[in-house]
Amino acid sequence: MQFQKTPGWLDWYQGPSKPGFTLPAGAVDAHCHVFGPGEEFPYAPERKYTPCDASKHQLFALRDQLGFERNVIVQATCHGADNRALLDALRYSDGKARGVATVRRDISDEQLQAMHADGVRGVRFNFVKRLVDFTPKDELMEIAGRIARLGWHVVIYFEAVDLPELWDFFSGLPTTVVVDHMGRPDVSKPVDGPEFALFLKFMRDNPNVWSKVSCPERLSLSGPRALDGERAAYRDVVPFARRVVEEFPDRVLWGTDWPHPNLKDHMPDDGLLVDFIPHIAPTPALQQKLLVDNPLRLYWPEQVKD
């Protein structure tokens, strides 16, 4: 089956540079995707966009190029609740990848158990209106209750302006909750302003809430320019991500977001994204928590030593 990529959206970056920052041993890319290939794993009829193909082979080659040892692969909205591409990548990874799936209310307990055996450890609830149609909250809460019995968590994707209306629902989820990309703050506003302060309060008030400090390429207004010869792009996002890392060091994750769907301005060099990490986690201790200890605790708890 042939799929035509959404016009104007960029292909992922070919030939990423080697990062200057050396990742700690055991580092996990805790947010990435696989797309298709469409001829093997067709995109969902209800999708809001059609991406370029981005296979498991290409993802794991990037993992090795950047210096990561493991991946957490998140189901993308273009595949809907058809998790076959995700599950295929998990099985191929030989235990080096875990997954976050999208499921519907009608999924059976046997299907959930089979997904667990393949490496799924969470489900994603998407509240970004331009990407998905609304799913009733009672259905999502029912799903959350069922996956809690497996020890899974919920990943939530929303935009900062929508947090007030979603606060009570998020606070009532019976699992660990992981926020994608810090709730997409508006980085043109002050890091000490009321909008980002509300997100920090949300994390303080809910000790089960974690955050991914990822996707500066989506949030930045200054863009990928390196300053003074440094590989220090996306400078305007640094204060926001660093605030979250330093205040909640045991509840943060980081990922590339490869292959970066829906971008029109520029496609990031993933090596440059890795070099963003020491600016938001400036000490070896924070880097160890962000890249190794926290993702292992959430996705490979059986391998964590007491």
Rank of each mutant, 00 (worst) to 15 (best):
R63Q: 13
Y157F: 07
F134A: 15
R149N: 10
K129I: 10
P164H: 00
I156L: 12
P164W: 07
C78L: 09
D180Y: 05
R124Q: 10
K56E: 14
F125C: 04
L140A: 03
D109C: 07
R121K: 15
D88G: 03
P174N: 06
P51Q: 11
L166V: 01
Q113N: 11
E69S: 10
A61N: 07
L90R: 01
G95I: 03
Y157D: 07
S93V: 12
K189Q: 13
E142P: 04
D118R: 12
V177P: 04
D53G: 04
K189H: 10
H57A: 15
D168W: 03
K56Y: 13
V187P: 02
L62A: 09
R149I: 01
F169P: 01
M115W: 06
H57V: 14
C78R: 01
R124F: 13
H57E: 15
G151C: 08
F170L: 14
P190N: 03
L62P: 01
L140H: 02
A89R: 05
D162I: 03
S55A: 10
Q65S: 14
G183E: 06
A144M: 02
D133R: 09
L90W: 04
V179H: 00
T175M: 05
R63N: 00
V155C: 04
K56D: 11
A76L: 03
V74I: 10
L59M: 10
F170Q: 00
A101L: 11
I156W: 00
G99R: 10
I156V: 15
C52M: 11
H57W: 12
P136A: 13
D180V: 01
D109I: 05
D180S: 09
W152K: 08
G99K: 13
V161M: 13
P136R: 12
L90H: 06
K129W: 11
E69Y: 00
E159P: 00
D64T: 08
L131G: 01
V128Q: 13
D82E: 14
E139P: 00
A144G: 04
A148P: 07
V191D: 06
A101M: 12
V72L: 02
V179N: 04
R104V: 07
D94A: 15
A148S: 15
R63M: 12
G151E: 08
A89D: 02
N71R: 11
E110Q: 15
V103P: 03
R149T: 10
L173V: 10
N71G: 01
R98Q: 12
H153R: 03
A81R: 08
H116Q: 15
R84Y: 01
V120K: 04
V177I: 13
A117E: 15
Q111P: 04
A101Y: 00
S108W: 05
S108M: 12
T50A: 14
L150G: 03
F68Y: 07
F158V: 02
A61M: 08
D168C: 05
F158Y: 10
K137F: 14
N71A: 15
G183A: 08
S188Q: 13
